[in-house]
C-alpha cells in the first residue's frame, strides 16, 4: 500500500507502525463536506445574483456536487489508509497525504518544540493534532487526528525525551 514504487531487492520505506484514530475519518469527512457545501452555496448565490449566467452556474452545480460528494467520501478513507506515525527512541516518523504522499523523519535530538492543538471540529470528535518542530524552516512534522489522550501522552513523552537530549543544531 505505502510503497515507494520499489524495484525487487531495492530498499523501501516501511509504513510507520500506528494508524491515526478511526474517528479521524469522520473528522476529515466533515471538513471536506463543509468545504463542498460552502462551494455549492457560493455557486447558488452567484446564480441568484448574476442572472445572465444563471443557466451555466446552475448546470455546474451537478458535477461540482457529485465530485465534491465523492471527494468527501473517498478522501477521508484514503487518508486513513496513508496517514501513519511512529516514534522510536531515536526518531519520529510520519506518513501523510492521499494523492501526493509525504514521509518525514526527524531525529529526537533535533526536536525543538512539541505542541498539541485541537480545533473546534476536532474537539467534537475528541481528536488532537501533535506538531513537532525542528530547527529547520522546512516545516514541522504533524500528526493529525490522534485520540486526545494518545496525543497528550505522546506530546508529554516527546517533550521528556527531547529535554534529555541537548542541542538542536541551530
Amino acid at each position: 500500500m505505502i510503497d515507494t514504487g520499489e524495484t525487487p531487492g531495492g530498499v523501501r520505506l516501511r509504513p510507520p507502525h500506528h494508524r491515526v484514530d478511526r474517528r479521524a475519518v469522520l473528522w476529515w469527512g466533515c471538513r471536506a463536506a463543509v468545504a463542498v457545501v460552502v462551494l455549492l452555496v457560493a455557486l447558488v448565490l452567484a446564480a441568484w445574483w448574476f442572472t445572465s449566467a444563471r443557466g451555466v452556474l446552475l448546470l455546474t452545480l451537478l458535477p461540482v456536487g457529485v465530485l465534491g460528494a465523492g471527494y468527501a467520501v473517498v478522501m477521508p478513507w484514503w487518508r486513513y489508509r496513508v496517514h501513519r506515525w511512529e516514534t522510536t527512541d531515536s526518531a519520529v516518523y510520519t506518513a501523510s497525504g492521499w494523492i501526493s504522499r509525504e514521509w518525514r523523519v526527524a531525529p529526537m535530538s533535533r526536536i525543538q518544540t512539541v505542541d498539541t492543538a485541537r480545533g473546534p471540529l476536532q474537539r467534537v470528535f475528541g481528536l488532537s493534532t501533535v506538531t513537532v518542530t525542528t530547527a529547520s524552516a522546512a516545516g514541522p512534522l504533524s500528526i493529525d487526528g490522534l485520540d486526545h489522550e494518545v496525543a497528550s501522552d505522546l506530546a508529554e513523552r516527546l517533550t521528556m525525551t527531547t529535554q534529555a537530549v541537548p542541542g538542536d543544531a541551530t
Binding site: 494523492i99 514521509w103 518525514r104 529547520s136 522546512a138
Partner: peptide, 12 residues
C-alpha cells in the same frame, strides 16, 4: 536534521 520524502501521483 531530518529527511522528507515526497511523491506526487505522477512521480509514483
Amino acid at each position: 536534521i531530518g529527511w522528507r520524502v515526497k511523491q506526487s501521483p505522477l512521480q509514483r
